[in-house]
């Protein structure tokens, strides 16, 4: 099986600060690949390199066999890579339905079809009863769900989830985990997630990649990584002990 997404030797510097330092990984089709690491480890920058917000200074990204690094975000989305934003970016003045329909219209000719598709996704993410509400009036957990719904609406092959569990209560986290697992299994959607909520990582991830100060320090199965000495020292620390 060949990799769906491959990053090779990615480097990104901001004014002398190396945010992402020679990071490589590859994700197989159908995997749930988690990227963890302390704040400021360069996780979101790494996502931005994959999603086309920035071009990497060095290295390359391939998706489904084609180079995508340096391409525009809209082209990468069209190629089949959707993303959510850690700091949620709803279209606040538009209805929840329109927010998702804008994602869905990428693959439809008519707005009506986009709306119908958006409706299905809202149902899946428990947002259907809020669909005519303005997105700006949603609570934070609902906004997080909206981010996921909008990204899913573009019918991606791979989705980049940037801390979609943050701020959710444990029951909400479990619900989101169930939704993601379902999409991953039934739709064969590949998931790459940045996540601090280890409970979600352990439940979902097939492999975990750990970043620290922009560099990779470990990669492997969730159980193995959480026992890794380097990882425990630099990141999990007391957190792992608490579990």
């Amino acid at each position: 099986m060949s990799a769906l997404l491959t990053a090779t030797g990615l480097v990104k510097r901001f004014r002398g600060l190396t945010a992402v330092d020679n990071v490589s990984f590859s994700v197989e089709e159908g995997e749930v690949f988690a990227i963890i690491g302390p704040n400021g480890a360069g996780k979101t920058t790494l996502f931005n390199l994959v999603a086309g917000v920035f071009a990497p200074d060095e290295g390359e990204v391939t998706f489904a066999g084609a180079r995508i690094d340096g391409q525009a975000p809209e082209d990468i989305c069209k190629a089949g890579v959707a993303r959510t934003f850690q700091i949620v970016k709803p279209f606040p003045d538009l209805s929840v339905l329109d927010n998702v329909a804008i994602g869905a219209m990428l693959r439809t000719t008519h707005m009506a079809d986009a709306r119908a598709h958006a409706d299905d996704i809202l149902r899946k993410l428990d947002l259907h009863d809020r669909r005519s509400q303005k997105a700006g009036s949603l609570t934070l957990p609902d906004r997080k769900r909206l981010e996921v719904a909008r990204a899913l609406a573009t019918r991606p092959r791979l989705i980049l989830l940037d801390e979609v569990m943050a701020g959710l209560r444990p029951t909400e986290t479990d619900r989101m985990v169930a939704v993601l697992r379902d999409i991953n299994r039934t739709d064969r959607l590949t998931i790459v997630m940045i996540e601090h909520v280890m409970r979600a990582v352990m439940a979902l991830a097939t492999r975990v990649h750990v970043l620290h100060h922009g560099a990779s320090i470990a990669e492997g199965a969730p159980d193995a990584v959480t026992r890794d000495e380097n990882v425990v020292r630099s990141y999990l620390g007391s957190k792992a002990g608490a579990h």
Binding site: A51, V53, A72, P73, E74, C77, K78, A82, R83, F85, K89, P90, F91, P92, D93, L94, D98, A101, I102, G103, M105, L106, H110, M111, A114, R150, A151, A153, T154
Partner: peptide
């Protein structure tokens, strides 16, 4: 306003970065 183009405009008006991430060529 009701067309796909209209929705793309609204998306760009509300948040250009989010619009582009959803495949809208801003």
């Amino acid at each position: 306003r009701a067309s796909k183009l209209g929705h793309a405009w609204l998306a760009v008006r509300e948040d250009p970065a989010a619009a582009r991430a959803l495949g809208v060529n801003a």
